[in-house]
Nucleic acid binder design. Structure first.
Lengths: 159, 159
DNA sequence: CTAAACCCGAGCTACGTAGTCGGTTTTTCC
DNA sequence: GGAAAAACCGACTACGTAGCTCGGGTTTAG
């Protein structure tokens, strides 16, 4: 799961789309001005979102985009996966399975990154567009039991 | 929390260091050959790790590095924060607080990224070097209750 | 038939990662 | 004391790619 500004832009746009969903479809230029994202860049993002089946397009004047499903059925993880294609993750996966298993010690961290990926995906899968709109971001996740003593709090989302 | 290969290299090196911790300190060239990371690059990483107080150096022949604390007391999150300085996250933070609060609709996703950052940090804080060494990566985190229906499983760690 | 929208892909640019290089300083051991 | 092993330092660079622009289509309402 890649976490870039591209994915963030896509989510911003989709939230905007969900917010302004009405009878009429929403045009990209509306989203562009509201969210301050360039129109042509948005077009690229929505091309991918459409191919992924997350939105439907209506062409011609008065056209625009609609959510393919409801805002409660569209999860953030889907949006990010649609625009940021997955790419390779841990060094050993590039080496094609064998190299990794051959020298165990080299890939001690392998499980760690995989598990981290799972965590991120699980979280983002648990959040729908509607959740974001209504600011329902309950820490769905139980606090880690031990070890969470000090908080070097300088947090920031990944880029 | 930035998730780059730099951070991964640092964690790999620190796990290697924890694994080979003995009476003698571990030299970077040993780590370099075992983990296939260039020596000079490792030097840069360990300079930061040292400044962050995660390792101690011993100079001169037979010198090298030691963990400043035990492997059970060193958390993965600390390593990543030490080498990948935090950087800006959510666009509105760059705009300096006011801009964000002024137009609420623009920052609907703000809470989402912040919460995601918390999730990642919480997870990585819950894992110590010893945990990685012994492959104790229990899904410390409760499965998300609803919504986790489909698994579009193409996962990969962030880059 | 015109204009509003979507659609498409080629191309550009600035930035950060990942890495090199050449050197200095400390310290051990012969 | 001198050689050698290590940490230390900082400047420099190549390269990928994220992020964005441009210039054209194509569809369709009015």
């Amino acid at each position: 799961m890649k976490l870039s500004t591209k994915g963030r832009y896509a989510v911003m746009a989709m939230v905007d789309l969900a917010r302004h969903a009405q009878a009429k479809p929403v045009s990209l230029s509306d989203i562009a001005t509201r969210q301050e994202i360039s129109l042509s860049y948005l077009e690229q993002l929505f091309a991918r979102l459409r191919r992924a089946g997350l939105v439907k397009s209506v062409r011609g004047p008065g056209g625009g985009y609609r959510l393919a499903r409801g805002s409660a059925e569209t999860r953030v993880s889907e949006i990010i996966l649609a625009v940021d294609e997955p790419i390779k993750a841990t060094r050993c996966t590039e080496m094609g399975a064998t190299g990794c298993r051959a020298d165990r010690s080299k890939c001690l961290t392998h499980d760690l990154w995989e598990e981290l990926g799972n965590q991120i995906h699980t979280f983002l899968s648990s959040v729908s567009l509607l959740d974001v709109l209504e600011r329902r971001l309950a820490s769905r996740i139980a606090e880690a039991p031990a070890a969470a003593a000090n908080n070097d709090s300088s947090m920031a989302a990944a880029s």
